[in-house]
């Protein structure tokens, strides 16, 4: 890995880890996302701290241009995550709809009681 790539990766890692720790500290994320993003931060930190790790893994897999491995892993991870979010969002929307219906029916019952 070239020095420039390494510097870029290190900078990205620092930004990512700082943002993740901030979110975790504010306790705005659900536990499972906290764990997920902490793991991501850890992996980024390891890759940044041990630059030869990525080169070694790329060579092992027969990848000629080493950063490709990083991009490949990142895209794969993000794709899975996006799919997971689509699923979660669909589920949440379904529940919001059910709650809206519930609210309308409770309003109806309340109106009925008050005459």
């Amino acid at each position: 890995m070239t020095g420039t790539t390494h510097a870029l990766l290190a900078a990205l890692t620092v930004v990512a880890v700082v943002m993740i720790l901030r979110l975790v500290r504010l306790q705005v994320l659900k536990a499972k996302y906290t764990i997920l993003w902490l793991t991501v931060g850890l992996v980024l930190a390891i890759v940044a701290a041990v630059p030869n790790l990525l080169d070694w893994a790329a060579d092992l897999l027969g990848i000629w241009y080493q950063p490709t491995l990083f991009l490949l892993l990142a895209i794969g991870f993000l794709l899975l995550l996006a799919m997971h979010f689509s699923y979660e969002l669909s589920r949440v929307e379904k529940r919001v709809r059910a709650l809206a219906e519930e609210l309308a029916l409770l309003r109806r019952d309340l109106d009925d009681e008050q005459g």
Binding site: R97, A100, E101, L103, A104, L105, R107, R108
Partner: peptide
């Protein structure tokens, strides 16, 4: 009879 939804569905 009017059923009022809290937002547009």
């Amino acid at each position: 009879t009017c059923l009022s939804l809290p937002f547009n569905l």
